[in-house]
């Protein structure tokens, strides 16, 4: 029996480990492993181990501590399971499960051991520091958000790309003014090359000769949560990265549009809001730079989305300016 309990403990820890690894790797079966792990822990290991530990005492004490330990960690781990596999009801379980170790377990634990003269201080320290670890990491987790959000960014990217295509389709019919077409083509080609470099660096083979030739499937972008490629291309390549160069080129284009005699006031206003603006900056105590606003994170898909957005805006301004004539 004792052997079984020891083994079930190891099995539970390893099941949850491999469940998590499968989850990270997007391999099938991750959820089954996680459910099995939590099941083994909550229904086999935890009750059996606690009963065995209680019964093996010469004088039976800490009855309530054993019961409370079971309830608290049962609920906490089940709520974690619900959250990880996105089952309904996770919210209410988290509401109970997160504070329970601190609100219920800790006071009961301290109360039960208060009169034990020979209770080892190391155990007390272990429990308190263990709970501190749980608290600090729950806090860190509360700051984050599921990686699924990146899929939404990918959908956004596809939408922005469609909008860019729409604007470009209008350009075939209009005549050039003040060399704007050439300027916007140059700028868009530069952005396209940045985008392609990012995609290729993260093993998405969608480009040929710095031009995207294959459509993006939002569900099938490799490494879209990786940040290394974006960091390299935007900030580190050739010492300064491409971002300062891009900013300069956008500024040139913006100046060309605004200084042109044939640009209407509406288009001028539009250009000022869409390109290099930091206007929606509404935080009272902190000013965001354009870079921070446009590229809030370095995840591959977010950076590509932002680049595509700039490209689409340039095409829109070009179309609006030229078709206004």
């Amino acid at each position: 029996m004792k052997k079984f309990i020891y083994i079930s403990g190891i099995v539970a820890a390893n099941l949850i480990l491999f469940g998590s690894i499968f989850k990270i790797m997007h391999w099938p079966g991750a959820n089954i492993l996680l459910v099995l792990a939590i099941f083994t822990f909550c229904f086999l290991f935890l009750p059996l181990a606690l009963i065995s530990s209680y019964k093996s005492q010469v004088i039976k004490k800490f009855k309530w501590l054993h019961i409370v330990t079971f309830i608290v960690f049962f609920i906490t781990l089940v709520s974690a399971l619900f959250k990880i596999v996105h089952w309904p009801g996770a919210g209410i379980l988290m509401l109970i499960g997160i504070p329970l170790p601190f609100v219920l377990f800790l006071p009961v634990y301290l109360f039960q051991i208060r009169k034990e003269k020979d209770y080892a201080v190391t155990n007390l320290l272990g429990v308190m520091l263990g709970l501190t670890f749980v608290a600090v990491f729950s806090v860190l987790l509360a700051m984050n958000i599921s990686r699924n959000i990146l899929n939404s960014v990918a959908f956004d990217f596809v939408r922005v790309q469609n909008a860019a295509d729409f604007n470009q389709s209008k350009l075939a019919e209009v005549k050039d003014i003040d060399g704007i077409k050439q300027k916007s083509d140059d700028l868009c080609q530069f952005i396209e090359a940045m985008k392609c470099e990012l995609l290729t660096l993260s093993s998405n083979n969608l480009c040929e000769n710095d031009r995207q030739t294959m459509p993006v499937d939002p569900y099938n972008i490799f490494n879209m949560d990786k940040t290394e490629a974006s960091d390299l291309v935007l900030y580190r390549k050739n010492e300064t990265g491409d971002l300062p160069v891009l900013k300069e080129k956008i500024q040139e284009f913006k100046n060309a549009v605004i200084s042109s005699m044939k640009t209407s006031d509406e288009v001028k206003k539009l250009t000022n809001t869409l390109l290099l603006s930091t206007e929606e900056n509404l935080a009272p105590d902190y000013t965001f730079t354009w870079e921070q606003l446009e590229f809030p994170t370095m995840h591959l898909i977010a950076v590509i989305d932002a680049l595509q957005r700039i490209q689409s805006n340039i095409r829109l301004i070009e179309a609006e300016m030229l078709s206004g004539q």
Binding site: G130, L141, M143, E294, H299, A306
Partner: peptide
């Protein structure tokens, strides 16, 4: 151990909330 695995892995598959800024801008 269970908690350490859950926390460390969850932290590694989650992304920073900053990514939401992207939608605000968009």
């Amino acid at each position: 151990s269970m908690f350490a695995i859950i926390f460390t892995f969850l932290l590694s598959i989650n992304v920073s909330k900053n990514v939401l800024e992207n939608f605000i801008r968009q």
